[in-house]
Every structure is written in structure tokens, then in C-alpha cells.
């Protein structure tokens, strides 16, 4: 079921249209084999989240996703009791004349009334295989949540005081991503395999476009990639990620263009750059210059 070597992992990912470089494939392989969570960092839009989705799809597992945000608490991450239904149950028990407090408590705090949030879903799953658990943008959650996660990642069990302990029969495949808005505590990282996902090189990005924007002609895709790669060397406030490259390529295709020209670049720059000062810097003369450079290189090659 799980890939048995790095090559197999790379093939597995490639089959699901995820173009991973060798280092990432190695780390994924190790994560699967050693049963350790993957801790992925990198700029926005380099495919951290996508990796989890692809892995779930390729391994035919369920994907459980926990999107972190500031103030994420146990009730939203692990479980919560369904209060309204519990209330109703109490009223109905009253009407039926149930008098035993013990029985009532046992009844309303049973699994029926438990709302399972992502972390509990990932631990208390049905079916033979553990799901893929994606803990997205952990840096947005606050530190106490990290401490809780630490406990969870070491034994994969959750205790619900009223109900007992849930323990995962087999540990889920955990992928944690962070955009580095703050440093994650070392203790969490220590339990994980760490990998920094960088922007892809031209060749890999071209391969990604071939798969993700198949409508684009090969020549256009090459130009798009060359332009984006040149743009990343421009010291922008926010460099365009792979997702932006794909968007932009699709945008140009949607406008029925077979190749880039200065006007089309100016018109569609919003798909690529998301900050006004970046757009202002690149639009016009700078874009034209970059484009000329890209075209010259393409002509020379």
C-alpha cells in the first residue's frame, strides 16, 4: 500500500499530478515509513496544502483538514457536545419520567451527542486505513494549541472527560504546514520531519503547468514560466507562487492568446501580483523589459 522506496513515492505523487522534487519525495517517503508527521514550511503558494490533498487522493485515504486560526480552541479542533440536542434529550427524559440522574448523565454524555471535529475524526476513524490529517497554517493558532498538539502527535489519543479515551488504532498521516508568521515551538518540530518547500525551478514549474494548465500551448507555457521566474528575482514585496503562475497562464489562455505581449501582461498582471506597489513597479516599462529578455532567451534557446 505505502510506497517502498523514494522512486515509488515520486511516481505516486506524479501520478496524482503533483510534481515533487527529489528531496520532497524523499521526505514524504520517510514520513510514511517512519510514521512521523511532516512539517512543511515555505512561501505561500508553493503547494504545501496541495501535497496533503494529493497524498490522500493517491493513497486513497480520507483527508481530514484542520484550518488553524487565532483563537482555535478545543471545541473547534477536537470535539464539542451538541448542547441543543442534549437539552432536548433532557426534556424528553423528564417527560418520560426518568428520575435517575446517573442514567440521564450517562445518556446525554454518550457518543451520540458528540460533535466530532477534525482532530477527533482523524483519530477515531472507521475503515481500515487511517486518514491523512492536514493541520494547515499552524502558525496562525496560538501557542496553547501547539502544546495540545504536542500531546496529540506523540500518542494520537484524545480524552473526553465524560466519555473516555479515544485512541487511534493506527496513526494518521499527519501533514502540518506553516507560513512562518511566527516560529513554531521547537518541541512540535522535533516530533516532525522538517522540509522547506522552495519555489520550483523553471523545468519543474513548466512540468506543473503542463499538468495543471493543459490548455496552454507549449510555447506560451515556456514564456509564462520564464517571465514568472524572472519576476521572482525582482525583490518584490510578495513573489508570485505556483498557484499564481497557473492562474495567470489560465488567464492568458482564456483571453485566447498564444503568446505573451506587453499589453496582455499589463492587463493580466493582477493574476500574478497581489500588492499594488508590486504591480505599479512591474507594470509598463519594467514588464516590457522583462518580456523582451524572456523572448530573447527563448529565441536563443
Amino acid at each position: 500500500m505505502l510506497p517502498d522506496c523514494v522512486d515509488a513515492t515520486a511516481t505516486l505523487l506524479a501520478r496524482a499530478d503533483y510534481v515533487a522534487d527529489r528531496a520532497l519525495a524523499t521526505v514524504v517517503f520517510l514520513g510514511l515509513r517512519m510514521g512521523r508527521p511532516l512539517f512543511l514550511e515555505g512561501e505561500a503558494g508553493v503547494g504545501k496544502t496541495e501535497l496533503a490533498k494529493v497524498l490522500a487522493q493517491a493513497l486513497d485515504r480520507r483527508l481530514v483538514r484542520l484550518q488553524c486560526y487565532e483563537g482555535l480552541d478545543l471545541a473547534a479542533a477536537v470535539y464539542e457536545w451538541d448542547y441543543s440536542r442534549q437539552m432536548m434529550e433532557i426534556r424528553m427524559a423528564e417527560a418520560a419520567g426518568v428520575t435517575s440522574r446517573e442514567a440521564l448523565a450517562a445518556d446525554i454524555f454518550s457518543a451520540r451527542f458528540l460533535l466530532r471535529r477534525p482532530l477527533l475524526q482523524a483519530i477515531d476513524f472507521s475503515g481500515p486505513d487511517a486518514p491523512v490529517l492536514l493541520i494547515d497554517e499552524l502558525d496562525r493558532a496560538d501557542e496553547p494549541f501547539e502544546a495540545f498538539l504536542l500531546e496529540l502527535l506523540s500518542d494520537f489519543q484524545v480524552s473526553v472527560p465524560e466519555l473516555g479515551v479515544f485512541k487511534a488504532p493506527s496513526p494518521p498521516i499527519v501533514i502540518i504546514t506553516s507560513n512562518r508568521t511566527r516560529e513554531i515551538h521547537d518541541a512540535v518540530k522535533r516530533r516532525c520531519l522538517y522540509h522547506w518547500i522552495d519555489y520550483p525551478d523553471a523545468q519543474r514549474e513548466l512540468e506543473i503547468l503542463r499538468r495543471k494548465a493543459p490548455a496552454a500551448a507549449a510555447a506560451l507555457a515556456r514564456q509564462v514560466v520564464a517571465f514568472v521566474q524572472a519576476l521572482r528575482g525582482r525583490e518584490l514585496f510578495k513573489n508570485p507562487g505556483v498557484a499564481e503562475t497557473i492562474d495567470w497562464c489560465n488567464a492568458v489562455v482564456a483571453l485566447d492568446r498564444m503568446q505573451l505581449d506587453p499589453r496582455i501582461v499589463d492587463d493580466t498582471l493582477g493574476a500574478l501580483l497581489k500588492y499594488q506597489d508590486d504591480v505599479a513597479r512591474i507594470r509598463g516599462a519594467e514588464a516590457e523589459r522583462l518580456l523582451a529578455q524572456v523572448m530573447a532567451n527563448a529565441g536563443g534557446a
Partner: peptide, 14 residues
């Protein structure tokens, strides 16, 4: 390169 990636993933954390 695999070997290097494996060591990096386990020994580094930033």
C-alpha cells in the same frame, strides 16, 4: 541527494 534530504528532514527544523 536522497540521503541528504533524509538527514536534512530529521536534523533541521528551520
Amino acid at each position: 541527494d536522497d540521503f541528504r534530504a533524509a538527514l536534512a528532514a530529521t536534523l533541521l527544523d528551520r
